[in-house]
Design a binder for these strands. Structure first.
Length: 360
DNA sequence: AAATGTGTCAACCGCGGGATG
DNA sequence: CCATCCCGCGGTTGACACATT
């Protein structure tokens, strides 16, 4: 309703593309570049709608497309990434964590202690919240040469079935409820497990950040954990997130609002870190009050006087940066941190066993 | 050998949402 | 504020190849 169709349907060709059409499209884009898809068919002399041209180009003709079957490494990566950004459950976990942090206002010292040291984690969570809304593109961005459509097809035709065959819920990446299997530990609540996973990721990020900080700060000056947080806080990443609760145009804020309003509807996660009593936090936290103060500043930003100069573009970059932090660490897309929770990630088992037990 | 079933994948559809003028 | 363009999504279709009966 209201929207005009992307093109006049009459007289336009549908179905498989011919080599001649491909050639025309490639030639046109090589000459004129991408964009203006609506006008492109006419200019290129194609009897296709612009959307069809765009799809053909982005999913098939782009020179950087990698053809051929997915390698086992790629499949494993897709499964792992789907576990992170690929379901709304994770999205809500991230959201809940951010909100739980947000709920800790000045004076809530006990909760601060429970939560432990501050970190880059909220920034990662914000990035993930945003990116979770673009699941296939986010996953595809980590697999050079693969398109989101290709990954979606792979997931729907191969991987999803494989997970089901392995008794794993493809949505939650959890073992199916009724059959935990002989070697499985009693299943912890999904919330707890996801939170443990998140916390594990957070700790890794912190460790890495701390390590990197050693390169920038002379040991003679001494360091506290707040130094590391300050470094992030003073960076452009921090600058962008200082404005998160200001201004409705903020894309992250928008996502948060949307997700927040849907939390009740989906009923997935409404726990806070403190509520689930994540043991990782207690065992590893430094419990720095300096950090708590910093976080109070960070999340009680209604009272902060910050000259708002960050554009949405900067914020977007920062969200990307935050996501990239997660994708990057420890290094080169090594997602082994996911396996720290020893009953959560079954990718290796899946890859090893699927061909034996789940042959179509 | 023919009919039928199944899997795969490129392509399409309709929708929501951000960006822009 | 509104209309339009563009992008990305989930879901689906249809052609084709291959397996099974």
């Amino acid at each position: 309703m209201g929207r005009t169709p992307c093109c006049e349907k009459k007289g336009l060709k549908k179905g498989p593309w011919t080599p001649e059409e491909d050639e025309r499209l490639i030639e046109y884009i090589n000459k004129n570049g991408q964009g203006s898809w609506r006008a492109l068919p006419k200019l290129a002399g194609l009897l296709r709608c612009g959307k069809s041209c765009r799809l053909r180009w982005t999913n098939y003709l782009r020179p950087d497309i990698k053809r051929g079957p997915f390698s086992s490494e790629e499949e494993k990566l897709v499964i792992q990434l789907h576990g992170i950004v690929g379901n709304r459950y994770t999205l809500h976990c991230a959201l809940s964590l951010v909100l739980s942090i947000d709920n800790i206002g000045p004076g809530s010292e006990s909760r601060e202690r429970e939560r432990g040291s501050s970190s880059v984690f909220p920034l990662i969570a914000f990035g993930l919240i945003r990116k979770s809304l673009e699941r296939w593109a986010a996953i595809a961005s980590q697999l050079p040469g693969r398109t989101d459509n290709e990954i979606k097809n792979l997931w729907n035709t191969h991987l999803k079935r494989r997970l089901v065959c392995m008794g794993i819920d493809p949505q939650t990446h959890e073992p199916m409820s009724t059959s935990n299997g002989p070697n499985r530990k009693p299943s912890t609540s999904p919330s707890t497990r996801h939170m443990a996973q998140w916390e594990s990721a957070r700790l890794e990020a912190e460790a890495r950040l701390s390590k990197e900080s050693l390169l920038f700060i002379p040991p003679s000056l001494g360091r506290t954990s707040s130094d590391y947080f300050l470094r992030i806080w003073n960076s452009e990443v921090g600058e962008s997130f200082r404005d998160i609760s200001k201004g409705s145009k903020n894309p992250c804020q928008s996502s948060i609002s949307q997700a927040s309003s849907s939390t009740t509807r989906c009923g997935s996660v409404s726990v806070t870190t403190a509520e689930i009593g994540n043991p990782l936090i207690g065992s590893s936290a430094t419990g720095s009050t300096e950090n708590g103060d910093l976080e109070n500043k960070l999340y009680a930003d209604d009272s902060m006087d910050i000259s708002d100069s960050s554009s949405s573009i900067e914020l977007e970059d920062s969200c990307d940066t935050a996501l990239q932090l997660l994708f990057d660490f420890p290094a080169n897309n090594d997602m082994s941190f996911l396996e720290h929770s020893d009953d959560y990630t079954f990718c290796d088992a899946i890859m090893a066993e699927s061909s034996l037990n789940c042959s179509p």
